[in-house]
């Protein structure tokens, strides 16, 4: 999967579940922390992980799955796309 497609998928999910059409407006910087800027709570991250695993049919690497490695669009993209088994 391409980075921009994954980005759109995540933004759609954010819109569907948390921001109802405002996700793209809120996401002015792909490097911003979602936790610190109220984009997603820790519980939301768990939901996002489950969604991505189910949708993409992969198991994200738990060893590297920390707040520091997953908090923000770019970090998520890096983590998911760097993962073995991510659909091309």
């Amino acid at each position: 999967m391409h980075s921009s497609e994954l980005r759109e998928l995540i933004l759609d999910w954010l819109d569907d579940n948390y921001h109802f059409g405002d996700a793209r407006t809120l996401m002015h910087d792909d490097n911003m922390s979602w936790l610190e800027n109220g984009i997603l709570s820790s519980l939301g991250f768990v939901q996002l992980i489950l969604f991505l695993e189910d949708k993409l049919g992969l198991v994200l690497d738990r060893d590297r799955l920390t707040r520091e490695n997953f908090d923000g669009m770019n970090k998520i993209l890096r983590h998911v796309l760097g993962q073995k088994g991510t659909p091309a």
Binding site: F45, I49, L50, E53
Partner: peptide, 16 residues
């Protein structure tokens, strides 16, 4: 505890 439990492949997966 909570995060790993909920994202496991086992019984607790998704049982928020």
């Amino acid at each position: 505890l909570y995060g790993p439990l909920l994202t496991t492949r086992g019984f607790f997966r998704g049982r928020f």
